[in-house]
Design a protein around this nucleic acid. Structure first.
Lengths: 205, 205
DNA sequence: ATTTTCGTGATACGAACGTACCACAATAAT
DNA sequence: ATTATTGTGGTACGTTCGTATCACGAAAAT
C-alpha cells in the first residue's frame, strides 16, 4: 500500500473544505466536486473518505458543532480565571454572534443545517436538540448561581430567562447575518438585556 | 386566443403551490416540476407565468411575506377593538411563532429564504431588511406609547427592548422549528419576557 | 519475492434539473 | 373569413450532480 494516512485527520481536512466551500457558495449549492477542489484533492478521494454526500454532510455538521464548542470554550476561558456568572454567560452568548468571518460562517451553516433538518430525518436527530439544550441548562445553572449570590434583578426566573437569552442571541445572529443589523448593534442589544437580568454590581467601585 | 386568464391570479396559485411543495420537500429540493405537479398544471405553464426559476422564487418570497403580513394583521385585529400596546405586541410576536402548520411553514420557508439570501444577491435585497425594520419600528413605537402611559417596567429603553423582543420571537421560532422546544414552551418564554417588560396593570381588578 | 491491501486517479453512467423549442387550439382583432 | 395572438401541451437539449467502475502504483504482509 502507499503510505498509510490518518483517516480521521483526512476527514477533518475535507470537512473543513466543506465548511469553507459551503460558506462561500451556500450549503445548498455545494457539491462533492466543490469540496474536492477546495480541499485540493480529487473527487474520488472525497468519495473514498466519505462514502456518500449524506455522510459527508453529517460529518460536516458534527465537525462544525465541535469547532463551535471549542470556540465557545476558548471565549469562556478568555474571560479570565474564575469568572463570574455574567462573564461566562456574556462570553457564551457573544461567541454565537456573527461578528467576524468565522462566526459568520458558523451561524450561516448552522442555520442552513437547521433548515435542512426540518425535511431531512437523518439530520434532524443530533445537534439541534442536544447541544442547545445543554447550552440552556448551562446558562440556567449560571443564572441560579447568580441568583443565590444576589446578582440577579428581583423576580428573575432562571429557566425562562436562560431560554430567552439563548433565543435572543440566536435571533440577533440571524438578523446580523441577513444584514438587517450590524454586529455592533446586536452586541448592544445583547448587553442591554444582560443588564436587565443582572442587577448592577455593588461595592467594587 | 383561448379564454383570457388573470395572470396575477394564476401566478398567485402557482406561488401557493410553490409554498406547499417547499414546505413539504424543503425549499432547496423543490423544482419546477414539483411546483407544476402541486399546482396541477404542466411544467410549461410554470415556465409561461414565471420565465425562470429565480423569478418564481422571488415572487414566492414576496407572496409569502404578503401572506404573513395579512396573518399578523388578522391576529392584531382579533386582539379586539382599540387594544393596548401589550395586546398588539403580543399578537404580533405570537403570530410569528410556529404553533400550527401554516405558521410552521411560514417560519420554515422564511428562514430558508434568509439563508439563501446570504449567498444570493437577488434575494438579499427585499424583505429581509425592510420588513423586520418596519416591525421593529412598530414595536418600538408601541413601547414608547406604553412608556408614556406608565405601563413599562422602570428603566425600559423602547428601542433595544423592541429589537430584543423580535429577536427573541425569531429565535424561539427556530428552536420550535427544529424540535428543541414545544410551541407551548416557546409561548411561555415569550409571555415571561413580556411580563418583565410590561409592569402589571393596576386598578382594573 | 510474491501477494494482498490501501490510497489515488480518471472517467463513465444514469438521473434530474432548468430551459428552449415546436406544435396547436382557441379566441380576439381585422 | 382570415389573420394574429394567447394559453397550453409535449418533449428534447445541455448541464450538473452523486455515484459506480476500471485501473494502477506503492507499501505492508506473507
Amino acid at each position: 500500500m502507499p503510505r498509510r494516512v490518518d483517516h480521521g485527520e483526512r476527514r477533518a481536512e475535507i470537512a473543513e473544505a466543506l465548511v469553507r466551500a459551503a460558506g462561500r457558495l451556500g450549503l445548498h449549492a455545494v457539491g462533492m466536486r466543490d469540496v474536492a477542489a477546495e480541499a485540493g484533492v480529487s473527487l474520488r478521494l472525497v468519495q473514498y473518505y466519505f462514502e456518500s454526500k449524506e455522510k459527508l454532510l453529517l460529518f460536516g455538521l458534527r465537525h462544525l458543532a465541535a469547532r463551535f464548542g471549542e470556540r465557545v470554550s476558548a471565549r469562556v476561558a478568555a474571560a479570565g480565571p474564575d469568572p463570574g456568572p455574567r462573564a461566562v454567560i456574556e462570553a457564551l452568548l457573544a461567541a454565537a454572534l456573527p461578528v467576524d468571518a468565522e462566526s459568520r460562517t458558523f451561524h450561516h451553516l448552522y442555520t442552513s443545517y437547521a433548515v435542512l433538518s426540518v425535511t431531512d430525518e437523518a439530520l434532524a436527530a443530533q445537534p439541534f436538540i442536544k447541544d442547545p439544550d445543554a447550552a440552556e441548562a448551562t446558562v440556567a445553572a449560571l443564572l441560579r448561581r447568580a441568583a443565590d449570590a444576589g446578582q440577579l434583578a428581583p423576580g428573575t426566573d432562571p429557566a425562562p430567562a436562560a431560554a430567552g437569552l439563548l433565543a435572543l442571541s440566536a435571533g440577533l445572529g440571524t438578523s446580523v447575518l441577513v444584514g438587517q443589523r450590524t454586529a455592533e448593534s446586536a452586541t448592544e442589544v445583547l448587553t442591554y438585556h444582560l443588564d436587565r437580568v443582572f442587577r448592577p454590581a455593588v461595592g467594587t467601585g
